[in-house]
């Protein structure tokens, strides 16, 4: 059986982030050309394209409920758009340095941002467009992620440290400093009890969030991991990444059965993977690559 995707969608621009809508009816691609494209995941047909910015994008993120899109660019101000209408909803005050990584809390109330040279994470009240807290951060850029109940914020820095803050008070809940290398991608289980981080050591480190102790390490990825997606049921995890020397080298996307800690399927990607997503019914996996395409694969191996 040839290892080919069910569909290849041509996006006309690099897709920074992909996501399936909760009803599974659309596949959303946040494109580097400042358009958000909606495709039918079954046919691959373009349903609509929402133009939202002409700025050169730096940090960009979808809210977990897929209603909002936050982005930062050369203007050094984070802007937030309504994904349905394409209208700008909020604009944060301009910062001294253009923010890099961004995250929106699942309750839609908070935004977190950081900037490499500042060594701080800023926490914002979205609706008021007001900064709530400045959290002292480690060295280098960091990935940011809120917990499902929006109570915690996690930052993964290139000083290899994971910092967990209580989003309300800004106090440290945990500082995990025994990871050997930088973590690029993070994910929480839907119930918030487990947390996974993956990065330059090609391993997915799984922690339980009660005491922030490591409970598992999923090994097997041939390249560095920069993208993770967990199915809503929390059982199936998709991981993709890139070859550190050249984006043109082919990579592998791994689909994990998390409870069994085993690899369900290995998908070949033509080159660097920008983002991965899994459909709400865990049947389909979307892979956005650096070649401006989104490939839709069956999550289960073909018989």
């Amino acid at each position: 059986m040839a290892d080919t995707p069910e569909r290849i969608i041509t996006a006309d621009a690099v897709v920074r982030q992909v996501a399936f809508t909760p009803d599974g009816g659309s596949l959303i691609g946040v494109c580097q050309d400042g358009q958000v494209r909606f495709w039918d995941p079954q046919s691959g047909a373009l349903q609509r394209a929402v133009p939202w910015t002409k700025e050169d994008l730096r940090g960009v993120t979808l809210s977990p409920d897929l209603r909002l899109l936050a982005a930062s660019g050369p203007e050094k101000a984070i802007k937030v758009w309504d994904l349905k209408s394409g209208e700008m909803r909020h604009r944060m005050p301009a910062l001294p340095i253009a923010p890099g990584e961004l995250a929106i809390s699942p309750d839609g109330k908070m935004l977190a941002s950081n900037a490499e040279a500042e060594n701080t994470v800023r926490l914002w009240d979205l609706a008021a467009a007001k900064q709530l807290l400045t959290l002292p951060d480690g060295l280098g850029d960091s990935s940011l992620l809120f917990s499902p109940d929006s109570s915690l914020l996690v930052g993964a820095n290139s000083d290899t440290v994971l910092r967990v803050w209580h989003a309300g008070s800004g106090k440290h809940v945990a500082v995990i400093d025994d990871l050997p290398v930088t973590m690029f991608a993070m994910v929480f289980s839907p119930d918030g009890r487990y947390f996974g981080a993956a990065g330059a050591d090609r391993t997915i480190h799984v922690f339980e969030t009660g005491g922030w102790k490591k409970v598992a390490a999923l090994n097997g990825q041939p390249e560095m991991i920069t993208a993770l997606a967990l199915a809503p049921q929390g059982r199936i995890l998709v991981a993709g990444g890139f070859d550190d020397v050249t984006v043109k080298n082919p990579t592998k996307v791994l689909i994990w059965d998390v409870p069994a800690r085993s690899i369900m399927r290995t998908i070949p990607a033509r080159q660097r993977v920008e983002s991965v997503a899994i459909s709400p019914d865990a049947q389909w996996v979307a892979v956005a690559d650096a070649e401006k395409t989104v490939q839709v694969w069956s999550a289960s191996p073909k018989a």
């Binding site: 490499e116 040279a117 060295l139 280098g140 850029d141 290139s158 000083d159 290899t160 050997p180 290398v181 930088t182 690029f184 990065g199 330059a200 550190d244």
Partner: peptide
Amino acid sequence: AREVLGPFYKKG
């Protein structure tokens, strides 16, 4: 002058 840390630092 400062430069970026980059993603490939390894402790120890």
